[in-house]
């Protein structure tokens, strides 16, 4: 259960990216966050995932206000989320396998366990055959899926995906949405930010729309 109360974010430099966002997302729900470019979608996801801290307001995850967490607790909070970054944030100095393994290495899992889980995640996104290559040699869509594999590899309860279909062609985008639907079906709470209305159509999922930092329902 995710609950925000009067959540506001003003970036250093003075730009007010979010104003008084109060919302609630149930466990196991699949929700879309839509809005024009610059509306504040990424900002909202980052606040929920503990990647940015709000200027005011609260974010409760399962009853705990994460904005009150100490600096040293933040890393452990982040391990409960899977985050698909808008700019992917892949590391091109290592293989596909090692990119996906990073969160598990950070959690201190034994090597053998890491290999099992990484291959399972790569299998889910259809990249198992490419585990040894460098992500540079992947197509845009494949890189997007690699980022998804890294987000789900530590079996998070909450998946935050920021423009996971980016600039992909519609068929490819549908593939990826289906993938998230599958995660959601096994109980994962999924929040997807997108400016692409076509992506949402016909899914019957709840949509939160943001305009210039404010919720418009």
């Amino acid at each position: 259960m995710i609950k925000t109360e009067k959540l506001s974010k003003r970036y250093p430099g003075g730009f007010q990216a979010l104003k008084n966002i109060s919302l609630s997302i149930g466990s196991g729900e699949m929700v879309f966050v839509t809005g024009h470019s610059g509306a504040g979608k990424s900002t909202l996801l980052k606040l929920i995932g503990g990647l940015e801290s709000p200027t005011s307001g609260t974010v409760e995850i399962n009853g705990q206000d994460i904005t009150k967490l100490s600096q040293s607790a933040i890393p452990f909070l982040r391990r409960n989320f899977g985050f698909v970054f808008q700019d992917l944030k892949l590391l091109f100095d290592r293989s596909v396998f090692d990119n996906v393994a990073l969160p598990l290495i950070i959690s201190g899992l034994p090597r053998s366990e890491i290999a099992k889980r990484v291959r399972a995640a790569l299998d889910k996104v259809g990249l198992l055959q490419r585990e040894k290559v460098n992500p540079v040699s992947l197509s845009g869509g494949e890189q997007q899926r690699l980022c998804i594999a890294r987000a789900v590899v530590n079996k998070p309860a909450i998946l935050l995906a920021d423009e996971p279909t980016g600039n992909l062609d519609p068929a490819y985008a549908a593939d990826i949405v289906a993938m998230f639907k599958a995660f959601n079906r096994v109980g994962v709470t999924v929040i997807i930010a997108t400016h692409d209305p076509a992506m949402i159509e016909g899914l019957g999922a709840r949509t939160i729309s943001i305009e210039a930092g404010e919720m418009t329902l």
Binding site: P75, R78, L102
Partner: peptide, 14 residues
Amino acid sequence: EIEVAKLVGATNSF
């Protein structure tokens, strides 16, 4: 690498 590691939950000591 440091930035990404922190985003996916690395502590400072890690």
